[in-house]
Design a protein around this nucleic acid. Structure first.
Lengths: 264, 264
DNA sequence: AAACATGGTTTCAAATAATGGAACTAAAAA
DNA sequence: TTTTTAGTTCCATTATTTGAAACCATGTTT
């Protein structure tokens, strides 16, 4: 995969364990691993000892560790947009009565960091942390449209371009054209590109300098909503995005720059 | 701190970043770090490149990365007790009308993996992933009581024994005595040891072989509940704990192609 | 403008840790 | 029992990490 030295390899092992949807035995990992037996074994030992993995001695299985949950809690609390955006999402979902998503980029995928579901008041933790493809979701395209070229190239190269529906964009040139259109328009649509019957409008969340922070979207079923109806929400979404961005940029250093005492 | 090689050190850096409650600059990390400048710098580079940390180029700050959230989602979904225990917790919280916690051990601390709040129906993700001390919480003591001696010694050695209230246990011998009592009784109390006015009853969740999986608790304010009232819930809690344990042990290999002769 | 900080980044030989083939052990199957 | 499979340990070789010091870029003082 990536490969920055030992740490990168250890991260690969974590991903590999995560790729199974249940606790795994050493042998199963070995089968799919590029590492030789002893090396993989040592990584597992280390990661277990660090709490990044858990080990069930009864069943001799490895699983992702609770230390990750702890770290992720911190990550979510003070480095995702979720806590900042919270009240705005509440408001927005009340207003529009449809599902609202808040997403950020995670390498080349979309990571949903928060969500408001129309039906149930608030859903489970399991929602935050879910990932999705970038090239065929509203939030994904909204964010990609504003990435600097260098990064965009990297991201596009990582897309699978799997055809989910007959409107899915399946080539990088189609996607690039779409991103241009999005940049002109200021926001993105999902025209049933990921799931049939599901459309959405997505608004990027940008810093003053135009850097991508995340995106938010309103999703609806085609049965209940048209693309035009969703587009009518654009000004409202833009407004929310601006507010979130402003808060995010103000939020950072409540303790103004205190001068450090020099000790030499 | 810990120190299994390079990976351990990288994990330390993650913890260090997490220890700040906002994005941090290189200099601030360096001040509190044991690593020399260049070493710390390289770790940060690597971790950012891996998505375990995020870097804000505008403000030149580091924060925990979204990859952690993604991994934690997987961890929570298929290696914590939370998805298994979900419906039982729902039921239990309806029954008793007080706050219910589900916790597991994370190194020497208590990690709350799920929660039902009496007031609000379901709370946010931000609740799952919170940590607490082991020596002065009901769930912490319930789990410790059933740890094998070797591990228990390690865990006890890590406790701070900070006095939060005048009932807090502040020595390891007091704690050990309490753990003995818990083992006899089968469940634990928190007698306002962590917060004044807050009491709880906690039940360990054990495998058939007696290994600790986690613990669950019912918490109440002394204004509204007495310890006796909570103790009356013990049979109900024991029952829930047994069910969760059974599910957890059955759950594991739905797809086991290897036909095992003996269960476990 | 020049000199000086401050905060961040790069270099490179020495020190250290990771590597992985092979040998080993435990437990299950024949 | 013997054989097979799965997991664990060893250790000489190899590759990576280390960190003092030099460097650079930006902002601040004289």
């Amino acid at each position: 995969m990536s490969g920055d030295g030992t740490v990168g390899k250890a991260c690969d092992v974590l991903d590999q364990v995560a790729s199974f949807s249940h606790p795994v035995r050493f042998g199963q990992l070995l089968e799919t691993s590029t590492f030789p037996k002893a090396t993989l074994y040592r990584f597992l030992q280390t990661l277990v000892s660090q709490g990044m993995l858990g080990y069930d001695p009864d069943r001799q299985t490895y699983a992702l560790g609770m230390r990750l949950v702890r770290l992720a809690h911190a990550a979510w609390t003070h480095s995702s947009l979720a806590p900042i955006a919270r009240r705005y999402l509440d408001q927005l979902s009340m207003d529009v009565g449809e599902t609202v998503h808040l997403a950020q980029m995670d390498s080349s995928q979309v990571l949903y960091v928060d969500k408001r579901n129309a039906a149930e008041p608030v859903e489970m933790y399991s929602q935050a942390g879910k990932i999705g493809p970038a090239y065929c979701t509203g939030v994904g395209k909204a964010m990609m449209a504003y990435l600097p070229e260098e990064e965009l190239a990297r991201v596009i190269a990582q897309q699978s371009f799997h055809r989910f529906t007959d409107t899915t964009l399946t080539t990088s040139s189609d996607l690039r054209a779409e991103l241009e259109a999005i940049k002109k328009r200021g926001y993105a649509f999902d025209r049933e590109e990921h799931e049939p019957g599901i459309i959405c409008i997505a608004m990027p969340i940008l810093t003053d300098r135009g850097r991508v922070l995340g995106a938010l979207s309103v999703t609806g079923p085609t049965m209940r909503r048209t693309l035009m109806e969703l587009e009518a929400l654009a000004p409202k979404l833009a407004n929310v995005a601006t507010q979130i961005s402003a808060d995010a940029q103000a939020w950072r250093f409540p303790d103004s720059k205190q001068h450090t005492i020099k000790a030499g």
